[in-house]
């Protein structure tokens, strides 16, 4: 059996709720949240620790932590991506994958045979020792691959992991939603829509789907493949 790989991160880098929202069902700490100065070990579902480090570094260049606020690191974007790739999406379970595979015009979209897992694995391998580079050199390396399917996919997934419901493992502690003032999947705005017409909605504490419903909702990534 494959040895279980972990992503090791200092607890304080991730949104405070990480353990509640991200590690659900993976009892690493029992009931006790780790101290901020401790490291957290996040079990990986698809990536090796090495690959996770590369992808994490990429997402941090795409959506950096900076003066404008939290970035991919605090949101735990790499955890989101790892789970997506481990689930039906990564395996192309819901894509039409019968041959013959032929190249076609851009109007027909992506016609390649590689599934997201393979696109990541191959793309990461080509990047080499990415984590050893300085931030500026990392940017140069990414600019060089900007037009590839791999980079486009990582960029898309970075935004997804930044602003998804925390049930998917990203947007830890809803740092992404706070950044843009998104209140979460609120069910009733009937009495607000005219009141806040042309008036910014007040900064509220966002609510995740789980908080809204008072119970856990499994993401599609948990469906067996």
């Amino acid at each position: 059996m494959k040895r279980r790989e972990f992503l090791i991160l200092p607890a304080k880098t991730l949104g405070g709720y990480l353990l509640a929202s991200t590690l659900a069902g993976e009892s690493l700490f029992g009931q006790n949240a780790p101290k901020p100065e401790a490291d957290v070990k996040i079990p990986l579902r698809f990536f090796t620790a090495q690959e996770a480090a590369v992808v994490s570094a990429m997402t941090e260049r795409i959506f950096p932590t900076d003066a404008s606020g939290a970035g991919a690191r605090e949101a735990g974007v790499v955890i989101f991506i790892d789970r997506q790739l481990a689930g039906p999406y990564g395996h192309d379970k819901y894509r039409y994958t019968k041959g013959p595979w032929v190249e076609s015009i851009p109007e027909h979209g992506y016609q390649g045979q590689a599934n997201p897992r393979k696109i990541y694995r191959d793309g990461i391998a080509k990047l080499g020792d990415f984590t050893a580079l300085s931030a500026a050199n990392q940017d140069q390396a990414l600019i060089a691959i900007e037009r590839t399917t791999f980079f486009q996919m990582v960029r898309t997934h970075t935004l997804e992991g930044m602003f998804c419901d925390p049930l998917h493992g990203g947007n830890a502690d809803m740092v992404g939603w706070r950044l843009i003032g998104y209140p979460g999947p609120v069910m009733a705005f009937r009495h607000e829509i005219e009141k806040y017409r042309g008036v910014p909605y007040p900064k509220v504490e966002p609510q995740s789907l789980e908080q809204m419903l008072g119970r856990k909702v499994p993401g599609w990534e948990d469906e067996p493949v």
């Binding site: 999406y89 192309d92 379970k93 819901y94 894509r95 039409y96 994958t97 027909h108 997804e160 602003f163 998804c164 419901d165 049930l167 998917h168 999947p185 069910m187 789907l209 809204m212 419903l213 909702v217 993401g219 599609w220």
Partner: peptide, 27 residues
């Protein structure tokens, strides 16, 4: 439909749609 207020699964991965791996159209 209580549980489906989730952008990733429903807007971006089309969780409610017909499973396209089983049948699609060509163009």
């Amino acid at each position: 439909y209580m549980d489906d207020m989730d952008e990733v699964d429903f807007s971006l991965r089309f969780r409610m749609m017909q499973n396209i791996s089983e049948e699609t159209v060509t163009h």
